[in-house]
Structure formats: C-alpha cells, structure tokens
C-alpha cells in the first residue's frame, strides 16, 4: 500500500463530479439551480468536467427575483452562450402577477422569501425530480446536518427528523411521485475551498465579487447597495464606498463588505484572515437563530 493522497481540491472535485454523475444516472428529469453566484458557477464548471464532451443531462434553472444585480444577468447570459446548454428562467414577477405571492411592504421588503414559491412552481411545471444546488455544510448549522441527497415532499419541505441515513458514498435517490431530491455536490467544500478552486481552475466570475465603487446605505448595521428595489426613506444616507459582495443574491438582502480586493488573490487573503462568515453578510439569516432551518423546511434552496 502506498502513502499517496489526493490533494484536497482534487478530492473535493472528484467527489462533486461523482455526485453529479449519480444524479445523471439515477433521475429522469434533473435540473441544476443556477443563481449566478460563485457556488453555482463552480457547479457548472464541475458539470463540464463530469459530462464533456457530451451535453449536460440537465438544464440550468434560474429563479429570477427581478431584483438582480445587472452584472449577474450579464454573466449568466454570456456563460450560457459560451457553454451552449439550456437555461430555464422562473420569474418571481410571474408569481406576483398570478397572485400566488404578495410583494412585501416596508423598509425591509425583499423578494427573497417569495422565490420559494416560484421555485416550487418551476419544479412542478417541468416535473423536475432532482435539483442540484450549490449549498455547503459550512455555511450554516442547519445545513451542517443536511444530506447530499436531500428528499423534499410534494410541498418542497425538508424534514430534518426524517432524513435518510447516507452511508459510504451510496446515495439513495428513490422517491415517490411528486417528491423531489435536492442534491448538494459541494456539501463538503468550505468557502475558502470554493475560492481556491476558482483560482486554480481560472473560472470567470461576475464583477460584483471584486472591489468596486458603489452607492450604498447602511441598514441594520450592514451595507446595502442603493437601488430602485430597496425601499428608502429620508433617514437613509447614500454613501459611495469601495465594496464587494461575498454572496450574490437578491439586491434587497445581499449585504456588501467594504473591500479593496480587486483580484482573486486579494479575496482569498481577505477571507483567510476574515472574521465574518459568509452568511453573516446575508440579512435573511439574521431574523432568528433558527431562521435557516425554518426556511429549508419551507422549501428554500
């Protein structure tokens, strides 16, 4: 027996490719949930490695809140054109127009919570039986216990008490009609792993990940991008700052951090020495200690 060990990025990559191929092998109509964020961009790159020179055995699905950073949409469309794969878009605006959800009011209004409905409708409409997502276990403590194949009932709900045991690397994707499985190929990656992988593989990213000048306001101690989607009042003071975003979500709930990290090496140094974890910059988790668990049970990604 030799003492060779795979480098950690090779091991994480091999595991993610293995999981993606299991999805292809086990499901009839899978989809890859693409948010435009670095984690789902990494998934697309891994899918290229898993299936090229063949086509992806699934489309990309973007749930569009309509409150996106413009840079994300530009990136998305360029990427889809480059790789030549199919993109399906579910619009939160459609759910609002159909009266399925009601737009929130007030200062902290966000479409973030509404997108769950649009996602579930999109899944139902296309009859997806597996949705691949870029969630990682290090993001949040409810996620730390989620399986790689995570079964959702027909209401999209996650039941943390009824999770299937997941042994070795055998993933049980058997489901009843109406159920679907959320699959998380990069469960075992940390934020820094993703960044190191993006650097190693030279994967292009939307520009908002890098430091730039932007008009911001301070809300609940966090920096938010000033935009027409953010309900502002006289108390809000706009300041131009050097910022970047650590996650890419809806403009109304994704906080910026002040940063001078213009290159990926700067970002990796910044994160390595950082003292705020990634979801700390997402206002939607701040509501209560059990916020993520509640939203996952309700069918959030």
């Amino acid at each position: 027996m030799s003492k060779y060990r795979l480098d950690y990025l090779d091991e994480l990559e091999a595991e993610a490719i293995y999981i993606l191929r299991e999805v292809a092998g086990q499901f009839e109509k899978p989809a890859l949930l693409f948010s435009g964020g670095k984690d789902s961009i990494t998934l697309v790159h891994l899918a290229l490695k898993a299936f090229r020179p063949g086509k992806f055995p699934f489309p990309l699905v973007h749930i569009d809140t309509g409150h996106n950073f413009e840079e994300t949409i530009t990136y998305r469309d360029e990427m889809v054109a480059r790789i030549g794969e199919k993109l399906i878009i579910g619009h939160v605006q459609d759910s609002i127009n159909e009266g399925k959800v009601i737009e929130q009011k007030g200062k902290n209004a966000s479409r973030n919570a509404l997108q769950t409905v649009t996602l579930l409708d999109t899944i139902a409409q296309h009859q997806f039986d597996a949705c691949i997502g870029g969630a990682r276990r290090d993001e949040e403590k409810a996620r730390a216990k989620e399986r790689i194949f995570s079964v959702r009932d027909e209401f999209g709900q996650w039941d943390p008490k009824r999770q299937r045991p997941e042994l070795w690397d055998i993933y049980n994707g058997k489901i009843h009609k109406g159920e679907n499985v959320r699959v998380f190929p990069i469960s075992n990656w940390t934020e820094l792993d993703v960044w190191n992988y993006i650097r190693r593989e030279n994967i292009p990213l939307p520009t908002i990940y890098f430091a730039h000048q932007r008009d911001c306001i301070t809300r609940n101690g966090q920096l938010m991008a000033a935009s027409p989607f953010l309900n502002m009042d006289a108390d809000d003071r706009i300041e131009n700052k050097n910022v970047r975003f650590r996650t890419v979500g809806d403009m109304t709930c994704t906080a910026a951090v002040e940063s001078y990290a213009f290159e990926i090496d700067d970002i990796i140094n910044e994160i390595a020495s950082s003292k705020i974890s990634e979801r700390g910059a997402r206002m939607d988790d701040k509501v209560s200690e059990a916020a993520m668990e509640d939203r996952k049970k309700g069918g959030y990604f």
Partner: peptide, 8 residues
Amino acid sequence: QWVVRPQT
C-alpha cells in the same frame, strides 16, 4: 456511473 456518448 454514466456512459458519455456525444453522438455528434
């Protein structure tokens, strides 16, 4: 796991 057949 999967047979890659581009069929192009």
